[in-house]
Simulated scan of single mutants.
Amino acid sequence: MISIKGLSKVFTFNNKKLTAVDNLTLDIKEGEIFGVIGYSGAGKSTFIRLLNRLEEPTQGDILIDKQEITTLSANQLRLARQDIGMIFQHFNLLWSRTVKDNIAFPLEIAGIPKAKREERVQELIDLVGLTGRENAYPSQLSGGQKQRVGIARALANNPKVLLCDEATSALDPETTNAILDLLVDINKKLGLTIILITHEMHVIRKICHQVAVMEQGKMVEQGNVLEVFSNPIAQVTKKFVAQVMGTADEGEDIKSLQEMYTDGKLIHLHFVGESTNQTLISQIAKKFPIDINILQGKITQTQAGGYGTLFVQMIGEEEEINKAVVFIRDETSAEVEVIENVN
């Protein structure tokens, strides 16, 4: 669906050059939700604006549905943008227009007859959950409702791609989750390809299939969300994963557990994908004559499955504890690490 090769954007300020996007190459499949995450200044907003040429690339190629975006004339680009919807952090609504008139605006520009406009607008109002608010003005709407208008407007011309520029960062957590659920619903119902940029790993975890991590204009890591969560490589990725998993102070946690629980062995378990659904603790307790004390842990879900970590204390004969550890390693898909034998 989308193929990007050697994409760069260089800004010049006071005769000094700043590379905001640095030689990016990636492919995005049709119908997937692709997340781009990075801290402020990473270049992610510039990247997404390059895709519909709200920013002109310095170099590189952007192929969307077999059409080379970077070579289009102004008139050709205007038509191509009808296939590329976009929603923004601060909604960008027309404050003098009602909900239905905001949604109808791109249809008016496209020259769609009034009867068809009204039919399409009502479809979109129902789709995004704004039935009954058709005649309200933006000043009368909550933040979540405003973003629903923005989403409906972006979908007006039946685009093939939806670009989301920090679409939830101005919303509270509950509203954010509602908007993310709406995007997932739209993705499934319409088969829409969604590219979403954010600085929040929670957003990536909740709805994305693939993720690319940006730092200083470069893509430093990319892959399936579950794989990136379970095995982050770049330091910046590890920081983002720690935000969601609460593993930033894991070293301190281990030290505290070692001091508090001095019997038996301290075991660190990692669960990925289907292994999160295994009744592992129950199996071990039934199979081996040892006591198991669950100390702390967390499981989080992604679109591709779960990922989690768990600390347990195993108390009993050392031989039986060792057998249990071998069983986990050889007979289950969970990963196991013996932190310390304190006996």
Rank of each mutant, 00 (worst) to 15 (best):
P57I: 04
D165R: 01
K116L: 15
M314Q: 02
T98A: 06
T168K: 00
L269K: 00
I254H: 06
C208S: 12
G251F: 01
A285L: 12
Q278K: 12
M245L: 15
L72P: 07
R133F: 15
Y39E: 14
Q243C: 13
S256M: 13
N341P: 05
N293S: 04
K255W: 12
V228L: 15
K323M: 06
E200Q: 13
I267Y: 09
D22W: 07
A152S: 14
D253M: 13
Q147S: 05
E200G: 13
R205H: 03
I109K: 04
T247R: 00
Y137S: 14
A170L: 04
A74H: 11
Q210G: 14
M201S: 08
T46C: 11
L7C: 03
F327C: 10
E320Y: 08
D22Q: 08
F240W: 14
T247M: 09
M219K: 08
V336K: 03
T247S: 15
F288A: 09
L180P: 07
G60S: 01
Q59C: 15
E335A: 10
L7M: 13
A212D: 08
F240Q: 08
I197P: 07
I195A: 00
M219W: 12
P138Q: 01
D185W: 08
V203Q: 04
A20V: 04
V36S: 13
A170V: 11
I339A: 10
L155T: 01
G6S: 15
Q278P: 03
D83I: 08
K66G: 12
L130P: 10
L266A: 00
E55S: 04
I328V: 06
I62Y: 05
F34C: 02
S333T: 02
S139M: 06
A156G: 10
R120T: 02
R49L: 14
I328C: 04
T262W: 04
R148I: 00
V128G: 03
I2M: 09
T46E: 11
Y39A: 06
L141A: 13
T276R: 00
Q283P: 06
H90S: 08
Q67S: 15
L93G: 04
I294E: 11
G41P: 07
S142T: 05
L171A: 14
Y261G: 11
T193L: 14
T98F: 08
I321C: 11
Q222A: 10
T332Q: 09
T58Y: 06
S142I: 03
Q303E: 14
A42M: 01
R117S: 04
